[in-house]
Protein backbone atom coordinates (compact mmCIF):
# COMPACT_ATOMS: atom_id res chain seq x y z
CA UNK A 1 0.00 0.00 0.00
CA UNK A 2 1.54 3.23 -1.10
CA UNK A 3 2.05 5.92 1.48
CA UNK A 4 1.63 9.54 0.53
CA UNK A 5 4.02 12.12 1.71
CA UNK A 6 2.88 15.49 2.86
CA UNK A 7 -0.48 14.35 4.19
CA UNK A 8 -0.99 14.54 7.89
CA UNK A 9 -2.56 11.11 8.20
CA UNK A 10 -0.08 8.31 8.80
CA UNK A 11 2.99 10.46 8.20
CA UNK A 12 6.31 8.67 7.86
CA UNK A 13 8.67 11.42 8.74
CA UNK A 14 8.95 13.43 11.85
CA UNK A 15 8.34 17.13 11.41
CA UNK A 16 8.45 19.98 13.84
CA UNK A 17 4.73 20.63 13.45
CA UNK A 18 4.05 17.24 14.99
CA UNK A 19 5.55 18.18 18.33
CA UNK A 20 2.17 19.48 19.50
CA UNK A 21 0.68 16.00 19.24
CA UNK A 22 3.37 14.62 21.48
CA UNK A 23 2.81 17.43 23.95
CA UNK A 24 -0.88 16.51 24.25
CA UNK A 25 -0.20 12.79 24.34
CA UNK A 26 2.47 12.71 27.02
CA UNK A 27 0.41 13.81 30.05
CA UNK A 28 -2.33 11.41 28.94
CA UNK A 29 0.19 8.60 28.91
CA UNK A 30 1.30 9.43 32.43
CA UNK A 31 -2.30 9.31 33.65
CA UNK A 32 -2.86 6.04 31.84
CA UNK A 33 0.16 4.56 33.56
CA UNK A 34 -0.98 5.62 37.04
CA UNK A 35 -2.34 2.25 38.18
CA UNK A 36 0.92 0.53 37.33
CA UNK A 37 3.03 3.23 38.92
CA UNK A 38 0.83 3.08 41.98
CA UNK A 39 1.13 -0.65 42.33
CA UNK A 40 4.89 -0.70 41.82
CA UNK A 41 5.30 2.11 44.27
CA UNK A 42 3.10 0.46 46.91
CA UNK A 43 4.78 -2.90 46.47
CA UNK A 44 8.15 -1.45 47.40
CA UNK A 45 6.94 0.73 50.27
CA UNK A 46 8.25 0.03 53.76
CA UNK A 47 5.64 -0.29 56.49
CA UNK A 48 5.97 3.27 57.83
CA UNK A 49 5.15 4.73 54.45
CA UNK A 50 2.10 2.50 54.09
CA UNK A 51 0.74 4.00 57.30
CA UNK A 52 1.69 7.56 56.40
CA UNK A 53 -1.11 10.11 56.33
CA UNK A 54 -1.77 11.79 54.00
CA UNK A 55 -0.75 8.78 51.90
CA UNK A 56 2.19 9.37 49.63
CA UNK A 57 2.03 8.32 46.03
CA UNK A 58 5.68 7.57 45.36
CA UNK A 59 7.83 5.35 47.48
CA UNK A 60 10.68 7.13 49.24
CA UNK A 61 12.74 4.29 50.66
CA UNK A 62 12.11 1.28 48.44
CA UNK A 63 12.39 -2.07 50.18
CA UNK A 64 11.86 -5.72 49.27
CA UNK A 65 10.16 -6.39 52.62
CA UNK A 66 6.73 -6.92 51.07
CA UNK A 67 8.07 -9.52 48.65
CA UNK A 68 10.01 -11.23 51.42
CA UNK A 69 6.87 -11.39 53.55
CA UNK A 70 4.92 -12.79 50.61
CA UNK A 71 7.41 -15.56 49.87
CA UNK A 72 7.73 -16.23 53.58
CA UNK A 73 4.00 -16.84 53.73
CA UNK A 74 4.29 -19.04 50.64
CA UNK A 75 6.74 -21.36 52.40
CA UNK A 76 4.18 -22.10 55.09
CA UNK A 77 1.63 -23.50 52.65
CA UNK A 78 1.36 -27.22 51.98
CA UNK A 79 2.01 -27.03 48.23
CA UNK A 80 4.85 -25.24 46.45
CA UNK A 81 4.15 -22.06 44.50
CA UNK A 82 5.36 -23.73 41.29
CA UNK A 83 2.40 -26.12 41.34
CA UNK A 84 -0.12 -23.28 41.20
CA UNK A 85 1.97 -21.53 38.59
CA UNK A 86 2.01 -24.65 36.44
CA UNK A 87 -1.77 -25.05 36.77
CA UNK A 88 -2.33 -21.47 35.76
CA UNK A 89 -0.03 -21.70 32.75
CA UNK A 90 -1.70 -24.87 31.44
CA UNK A 91 -5.20 -23.51 32.00
CA UNK A 92 -4.38 -20.13 30.46
CA UNK A 93 -2.75 -21.55 27.34
CA UNK A 94 -5.70 -23.87 26.83
CA UNK A 95 -8.26 -21.10 27.34
CA UNK A 96 -6.52 -18.64 25.01
CA UNK A 97 -6.01 -21.13 22.17
CA UNK A 98 -9.37 -22.91 22.36
CA UNK A 99 -11.31 -19.77 23.23
CA UNK A 100 -9.88 -17.77 20.32
CA UNK A 101 -10.49 -20.65 17.94
CA UNK A 102 -14.09 -21.20 19.02
CA UNK A 103 -14.83 -17.47 18.93
CA UNK A 104 -13.28 -17.05 15.48
CA UNK A 105 -15.28 -19.94 14.05
CA UNK A 106 -18.49 -18.66 15.60
CA UNK A 107 -17.90 -15.08 14.52
CA UNK A 108 -17.14 -16.19 10.96
CA UNK A 109 -20.27 -18.29 10.77
CA UNK A 110 -22.39 -15.51 12.24
CA UNK A 111 -20.94 -12.95 9.87
CA UNK A 112 -20.61 -14.73 6.53
CA UNK A 113 -22.94 -17.72 6.57
CA UNK A 114 -26.64 -17.52 5.87
CA UNK A 115 -28.86 -19.88 7.80
CA UNK A 116 -32.02 -19.84 9.84
CA UNK A 117 -31.76 -18.42 13.31
CA UNK A 118 -28.51 -16.60 12.64
CA UNK A 119 -29.86 -13.29 13.83
CA UNK A 120 -31.48 -14.69 16.94
CA UNK A 121 -28.28 -16.46 17.89
CA UNK A 122 -26.41 -13.19 17.62
CA UNK A 123 -29.10 -11.52 19.70
CA UNK A 124 -28.72 -14.21 22.34
CA UNK A 125 -25.03 -13.37 22.40
CA UNK A 126 -25.82 -9.71 22.93
CA UNK A 127 -28.20 -10.54 25.75
CA UNK A 128 -25.44 -12.57 27.38
CA UNK A 129 -23.15 -9.57 26.96
CA UNK A 130 -25.48 -7.29 28.86
CA UNK A 131 -26.43 -9.48 31.73
CA UNK A 132 -24.92 -8.61 35.07
CA UNK A 133 -22.44 -11.37 35.77
CA UNK A 134 -22.73 -11.58 39.52
CA UNK A 135 -26.21 -13.07 39.45
CA UNK A 136 -25.26 -16.01 37.27
CA UNK A 137 -23.15 -17.55 40.02
CA UNK A 138 -25.76 -19.84 41.52
CA UNK A 139 -27.23 -21.31 38.31
CA UNK A 140 -23.71 -21.74 36.99
CA UNK A 141 -22.72 -23.60 40.10
CA UNK A 142 -25.66 -25.96 39.66
CA UNK A 143 -24.72 -26.61 36.04
CA UNK A 144 -21.08 -27.25 36.73
CA UNK A 145 -22.09 -29.63 39.47
CA UNK A 146 -24.57 -31.32 37.14
CA UNK A 147 -21.91 -31.80 34.47
CA UNK A 148 -19.63 -33.41 37.01
CA UNK A 149 -16.98 -30.76 36.52
CA UNK A 150 -16.59 -29.87 40.18
CA UNK A 151 -13.22 -30.67 41.61
CA UNK A 152 -11.63 -31.44 38.25
CA UNK A 153 -8.99 -29.47 36.41
CA UNK A 154 -11.41 -28.87 33.53
CA UNK A 155 -13.42 -26.38 35.54
CA UNK A 156 -10.47 -24.00 35.20
CA UNK A 157 -10.85 -24.11 31.44
CA UNK A 158 -14.30 -25.00 30.11
CA UNK A 159 -16.51 -22.29 31.67
CA UNK A 160 -14.08 -19.60 30.49
CA UNK A 161 -14.12 -20.59 26.83
CA UNK A 162 -17.29 -18.68 26.10
CA UNK A 163 -16.81 -14.94 26.01
CA UNK A 164 -19.67 -13.04 24.35
CA UNK A 165 -17.53 -9.90 24.05
CA UNK A 166 -14.97 -11.80 21.98
CA UNK A 167 -17.48 -13.09 19.46
CA UNK A 168 -19.12 -9.69 19.29
CA UNK A 169 -15.86 -7.83 18.53
CA UNK A 170 -14.69 -10.43 16.01
CA UNK A 171 -18.01 -10.50 14.20
CA UNK A 172 -17.93 -6.75 13.69
CA UNK A 173 -14.46 -7.02 12.17
CA UNK A 174 -15.28 -10.00 9.97
CA UNK A 175 -18.29 -8.07 8.62
CA UNK A 176 -15.76 -5.78 6.96
CA UNK A 177 -14.01 -8.60 5.13
CA UNK A 178 -15.30 -8.35 1.56
CA UNK A 179 -17.44 -11.26 0.40
CA UNK A 180 -15.69 -11.18 -2.97
CA UNK A 181 -12.43 -12.16 -1.35
CA UNK A 182 -14.03 -15.20 0.27
CA UNK A 183 -15.83 -16.12 -2.96
CA UNK A 184 -12.61 -15.84 -4.91
CA UNK A 185 -10.81 -18.25 -2.62
CA UNK A 186 -13.78 -20.61 -2.72
CA UNK A 187 -13.63 -20.65 -6.51
CA UNK A 188 -9.91 -21.37 -6.24
CA UNK A 189 -10.89 -24.48 -4.34
CA UNK A 190 -10.11 -23.54 -0.76
CA UNK A 191 -12.00 -25.43 1.89
CA UNK A 192 -14.11 -23.51 4.42
CA UNK A 193 -11.58 -24.17 7.12
CA UNK A 194 -8.76 -22.94 4.93
CA UNK A 195 -10.69 -19.78 4.05
CA UNK A 196 -11.13 -19.14 7.73
CA UNK A 197 -7.50 -19.68 8.66
CA UNK A 198 -5.75 -18.24 5.61
CA UNK A 199 -8.06 -15.46 4.46
CA UNK A 200 -10.23 -14.31 7.33
CA UNK A 201 -7.84 -14.85 10.21
CA UNK A 202 -4.95 -12.75 8.82
CA UNK A 203 -7.35 -9.87 8.10
CA UNK A 204 -8.89 -9.79 11.56
CA UNK A 205 -5.61 -10.35 13.38
CA UNK A 206 -5.74 -7.04 15.24
CA UNK A 207 -9.15 -7.86 16.66
CA UNK A 208 -7.92 -11.39 17.30
CA UNK A 209 -5.01 -10.10 19.34
CA UNK A 210 -7.36 -7.99 21.44
CA UNK A 211 -9.63 -10.96 22.02
CA UNK A 212 -6.63 -13.13 22.88
CA UNK A 213 -5.57 -10.63 25.51
CA UNK A 214 -9.08 -10.59 26.97
CA UNK A 215 -9.09 -14.39 27.12
CA UNK A 216 -5.67 -14.41 28.67
CA UNK A 217 -6.82 -12.07 31.37
CA UNK A 218 -9.97 -13.95 32.18
CA UNK A 219 -8.01 -17.19 32.56
CA UNK A 220 -4.86 -15.91 34.22
CA UNK A 221 -6.74 -13.76 36.71
CA UNK A 222 -9.44 -16.33 37.38
CA UNK A 223 -10.07 -17.12 41.03
CA UNK A 224 -13.73 -18.04 40.72
CA UNK A 225 -13.22 -21.69 39.79
CA UNK A 226 -10.66 -22.29 42.51
CA UNK A 227 -12.82 -20.54 45.05
CA UNK A 228 -16.12 -22.19 44.31
CA UNK A 229 -15.66 -25.44 42.44
CA UNK A 230 -12.34 -26.98 43.45
CA UNK A 231 -11.51 -28.62 46.74
CA UNK A 232 -8.35 -30.41 45.69
CA UNK A 233 -5.53 -27.98 46.39
CA UNK A 234 -3.52 -29.44 43.49
CA UNK A 235 -5.96 -28.07 40.87
CA UNK A 236 -6.07 -24.46 42.00
CA UNK A 237 -4.62 -21.49 40.17
CA UNK A 238 -1.86 -19.03 40.80
CA UNK A 239 -4.12 -15.98 41.05
CA UNK A 240 -6.16 -17.76 43.70
CA UNK A 241 -3.01 -18.68 45.57
CA UNK A 242 -1.77 -15.10 45.55
CA UNK A 243 -5.18 -13.95 46.72
CA UNK A 244 -5.11 -16.36 49.64
CA UNK A 245 -1.59 -15.39 50.62
CA UNK A 246 -2.45 -11.72 50.73
CA UNK A 247 -5.79 -12.05 52.48
CA UNK A 248 -3.93 -13.41 55.51
CA UNK A 249 -2.49 -9.98 56.24
CA UNK A 250 -5.39 -7.62 55.83
CA UNK A 251 -5.55 -3.92 56.56
CA UNK A 252 -2.97 -1.30 55.81
CA UNK A 253 0.06 -3.51 56.38
CA UNK A 254 -1.42 -6.14 54.08
CA UNK A 255 -1.74 -3.58 51.33
CA UNK A 256 1.98 -3.66 50.63
CA UNK A 257 1.88 -7.42 50.35
CA UNK A 258 -1.21 -7.28 48.15
CA UNK A 259 0.53 -4.83 45.86
CA UNK A 260 3.58 -7.08 45.69
CA UNK A 261 1.36 -10.05 44.83
CA UNK A 262 -0.57 -8.20 42.18
CA UNK A 263 2.66 -6.96 40.67
CA UNK A 264 3.77 -10.59 40.34
CA UNK A 265 0.41 -11.62 38.89
CA UNK A 266 0.31 -8.75 36.44
CA UNK A 267 3.82 -9.18 34.99
CA UNK A 268 2.87 -11.98 32.54
CA UNK A 269 -0.04 -9.83 31.34
CA UNK A 270 2.34 -7.00 30.60
CA UNK A 271 4.91 -9.21 28.89
CA UNK A 272 2.27 -10.87 26.73
CA UNK A 273 0.80 -7.55 25.86
CA UNK A 274 4.15 -6.13 24.77
CA UNK A 275 4.70 -9.17 22.55
CA UNK A 276 1.20 -9.04 21.07
CA UNK A 277 0.93 -5.36 20.43
CA UNK A 278 3.69 -5.28 17.81
CA UNK A 279 1.76 -7.93 15.88
CA UNK A 280 -1.45 -5.99 16.05
CA UNK A 281 0.17 -2.99 14.46
CA UNK A 282 -1.05 -1.96 11.05
CA UNK A 283 -2.19 -5.45 10.08
CA UNK A 284 -5.40 -3.92 8.89
CA UNK A 285 -3.63 -1.62 6.48
CA UNK A 286 -1.24 -4.26 5.22
CA UNK A 287 -3.89 -6.79 4.32
CA UNK A 288 -4.26 -5.06 0.97
CA UNK A 289 -8.00 -4.52 1.20
CA UNK A 290 -9.61 -1.19 0.83
Amino acid sequence: MAKYRGITVNPKRFERSQIKFYIILLPMIILALLPLIYIISTAFKPIEELFAYPPTFFVKNPTMANFRKLFGAAENTAFPMSLYLFNSIVATVAVVLLGCFISLMAAYALSKKRFKGRKSIFKANQLALMFVGSMLGIPRYLIIKGLGLTDTFWVNIIPLLIMPTGVFLLKQFIDDVPDSLIEASRIDGASEFRILMQIVYPIVKPAMATVAILFFQSAWNSTEASNMFINTEGFKTFAYYMNVLTSAGNGVAGRGMAAAASLIVVIPNIVLFIIMQSRVMDTMARSGIK
Binding site: F21, A258, V266, I270
Partner: peptide
Protein backbone atom coordinates in the same frame (compact mmCIF):
# COMPACT_ATOMS: atom_id res chain seq x y z
CA UNK B 1 -0.97 11.57 13.20
CA UNK B 2 2.12 10.66 15.13
CA UNK B 3 4.88 9.29 12.92
CA UNK B 4 7.14 7.74 15.53
CA UNK B 5 6.26 5.46 18.40
CA UNK B 6 2.60 5.02 17.54
CA UNK B 7 2.70 1.39 18.60
CA UNK B 8 4.41 2.37 21.80
CA UNK B 9 1.86 5.06 22.65
CA UNK B 10 -1.04 2.85 21.78
CA UNK B 11 0.39 0.11 23.95
CA UNK B 12 0.58 2.54 26.84
CA UNK B 13 -3.06 3.51 26.46
CA UNK B 14 -4.04 -0.13 26.50
CA UNK B 15 -1.97 -0.71 29.60
CA UNK B 16 -4.62 0.09 32.23
CA UNK B 17 -6.89 -2.54 30.68
CA UNK B 18 -4.15 -5.08 31.29
CA UNK B 19 -3.23 -3.89 34.77
CA UNK B 20 -6.53 -3.08 36.45
CA UNK B 21 -8.35 -6.33 35.88
CA UNK B 22 -6.23 -8.55 38.13
CA UNK B 23 -8.10 -10.04 41.10
CA UNK B 24 -5.71 -8.80 43.74
CA UNK B 25 -5.51 -5.45 42.06
Amino acid sequence: KVPKGRGFFRALFFFPVVVISGPVM
